[in-house]
Design a binder for these strands. Sequence first.
DNA 1: ATGGTTGCTTAGCAA
Length: 254
Amino acid sequence: MLIATWNLNSVRARLERLLAWLEEWRPDIVCLQEVKTPEANFPFAEIEKSGYHAAVFGQKGYHGVAILSRSEPQEISRGMADGVDDGQARLIAASIDGVRVMCAYAPNGGTPDSDKYLHKIAWFDRLLRHLRATENLAGPFLLCGDLNIAPEQRDVAHPERWQGTVLYNEHMSEIFGRLLACGLHDLGRNHLPAGTFSWWDYRLLSFPRNDGLRIDHLLASPALTGRCLEVFVDREQRKGKSPSDHAPVLARFS
DNA sequence: ATGGTTGCTTAGCAA
């Protein structure tokens, strides 16, 4: 079983690339972030033609998440259902082939002194409550997505330059640690060598310089962690004509 | 210190 997470940065701007990539890897489940479209404009037909179901939580212009799967998704839930509505589509979950899969796009956080950063912190507080309240972390569970946190020094190409940013600082590492304290395992930490990244800024020739961060994650419950055979980043998808600024992260399970 | 690049939507924001 192959499961992937990919911040596409617009599903419509990168549909041809996505379809070719689905054909290349035929993953069983794909968590997409930043689809940047409401459900009404989501390319369901093209994706279904490729043999995939799509569960979508969309929004006009910004954010938006989706789960693609070869088997039909069950028990789809959108958002956190905690009475808070920040108007941002960042979370969708579904049960597929006996695995509970949650696809998340965490707030970026803007700058450390901004309201956006406070919103990021509050969002993770809500996510942790939501996880504990609604999901069975004792079963096969996977939290995938762009969490906008590089948890450790090994996840940052130039820690001295990134230290203190919204993507890499002690508070963010502590929040990431609280996710792990729920009993989840960071599959990338277990299977990827230090210095493996998933995102490179569009600016400053970041990718050619490999000035990247590992901010896209697959966090698995113990039931799944033991079945993880390998994790890899498909860097080819950061190359070529109009790539996303993120590369897909894939995990293979027995 | 600043700048640099995308996508969505059409000037400016978010990343």
